[in-house]
Structures are given as C-alpha cells and as structure tokens.
Design a protein around this nucleic acid. Sequence first.
DNA 1: GCCCAACGTTGGCGCAGCCAACGACATTGA
DNA 2: TCAATGTCGTTGGCTGCGCCAACGTTGGGC
Lengths: 151, 151
Amino acid sequence: MRPHPAGAVTTPARMLEMPTWLISRAYAHAHRLLSDGFAAAGSRGYHYRLLGALEEFGPASQAALGRGTGIDRSDVVASLNELAGPGFIERVPDPDDRRRNIISITPAGTRQLRKLDKVLAGIQEKLLAPLPAADRTEFVRLLTRLLEPDN
Amino acid sequence: MRPHPAGAVTTPARMLEMPTWLISRAYAHAHRLLSDGFAAAGSRGYHYRLLGALEEFGPASQAALGRGTGIDRSDVVASLNELAGPGFIERVPDPDDRRRNIISITPAGTRQLRKLDKVLAGIQEKLLAPLPAADRTEFVRLLTRLLEPDN
DNA sequence: GCCCAACGTTGGCGCAGCCAACGACATTGA
DNA sequence: TCAATGTCGTTGGCTGCGCCAACGTTGGGC
C-alpha cells in the first residue's frame, strides 16, 4: 500500500488534553459498553432509568418520572410503551386526577431491573479496569464535584 | 398543586455513584456547552475535528481523515460538503490515485478554526470551573489513563 | 365561569455514531 | 495478463439520546 498523501492522520493534538474531548471519548467508550450490555438484555438507557426510579420511589405519574429521570415527557411515553410491551410496567389512569396515569413496576419489571443491575455492575468494572483502586474513588469524587453546580 | 402520587421522584440512588452515569452526565453537560458554542460559530463537532486534523497534518484523503478523527467515511463526506459550502476546505481529485480526493484547509478555514479554538478554550474554563486548579490536572490525568487502553 | 397550568401524546428536529451497498479505481498474485 | 481482492468516495438508512412545539383533556385558582 502506498503512503497516504501527507502521512498518517491521527487525533489532532489540540484535542488530546481538552477535558471536553476526554469526556466525550470516555462517554463514547462507556456508552458502547452500556448499549451493548443493555441491548443483550433487550433494553436501553431510558428503560433502566425509568425502572430504577419506579422501584425506588414507587408508582408515579409519567410527568413525575420525566422530571425525576431527566427524560423528556414525550420520550417517557415512548419508553413506557416499550416497557409495557413485555409487561415490565403497568399503566393505570389516576382516578383522582384524570389527566394522569399511574405507572407501577411489575414483578417481571423488577426481575428485568435486577438483570440490568448485574449487567451494569459488570460494566463499571470493565470501565474502571485501567484505574488502580485508589484512583477510582478520586475519579468519582472529581466527576461528582464537576457536576455539583447543576445537581 | 397537589402532591404527586407517591412523592417527589429524583435521580435513582442506584445511579448517583456509578461512573457510567457520572460520565454520561458530564458528557451531557459538556456537549451542551459545546454544541451551543459551536452553533453560535456556525459549526459542529465534526467540523472542528476535521479542520483541526487538516491544519495539523496537512492535506489528506477523506479516508485518512476519517481514520484519524474517528469519523465514519460517510459522515466525513457530509461534513466536508458542509465545510466546502462556506469555502473552509478544498476538494481536489488526487492525480496519483483517482479513487481519492485530496482535502486541504483554506485560509478561510483556518480563520474559522481559530474562532472555534477560542470558543473551545472558553468552554474548558466553564466546564472545569467547579474544580480547584489542583484537581483539574488530576482530572485530566485520570481521564487520560482511563482511555489509554483503547488509545 | 374563565383562564391558566399541568398531563399524556404525537410528530418532528439535531448531533453523534454506525453499517450496508454501490461503482470506480488500484494492487496483488496466480 | 487478468481475475480476485480491497480501497475510495458516496448514498441512504438506522439507533440512542436529548430537545421542542402543538394538541385535546382535565384540574385549580380566582
């Protein structure tokens, strides 16, 4: 193979130390692990967030779920539809407020959540593998601090 | 306003300390800053990556650019089209290999790149604001290390 | 009773990442 | 030499995640 026109092209040096770049690479890496793992379990990120919120806080309206998980109302609708298909959640109209649905997690949903929890735990491990144990806590601390202002 | 069905819903606790979650939040935060800043300058992430690679490595084929920047060949095509519109890059067929185009950055492209560089510098500042100076280097170090295995 | 706000839902957009397929061309190996 | 293999640019399509606008329905404040 002949050399490329002007030699090899690699990641531009101007980016290699930029936090935004590093974060976006780290995200890409994590997201790949995540979506592979979730896909293998037949779910995706939104599903996990919603099931997690439902288990932790009990039945809630779609709007409350959206606010709590940071998922847009319209995306909550779609995701809950997907979760309702396999019977992971139940949608019941709120008799006290006919605008609302009350969403609850089903036993099957809880089982799915457990499954996803396991997948996720494995992924944290894989992701942090390059960091010695001491650095991992520090890493989490720094990230948490970075995000503190916007809660 | 009446209370929600089962009290307030917030981010599920199971996520709050998961690296994958923190990284995805950090990315969301950074991405918002980035795409706002880039949009104000009439560009987006792919444009910056491509212009940066072109300036650093000189003229290159589209395939080489794609490999170097991690952008898919098909997306390189579209992005270069967008960059060619305002005249930020030039596309010339390679006389030595008629499969290839040779892409070069134009003076206007270099000016645009400078503009984006400035935007970006400001964003790093904004992003790292919550971290004391000492922590910033550590943060970059940890992220770099985390990504080392996959280069 | 009016007006405004919240609710669920539909439909649409953007960015980033990826994959499959195509015709054109180049390189390799029998 | 010529067929196979592989690369290049390009088209078109898909997913995840994050948004926004609009609509009809319903509830609460005045």
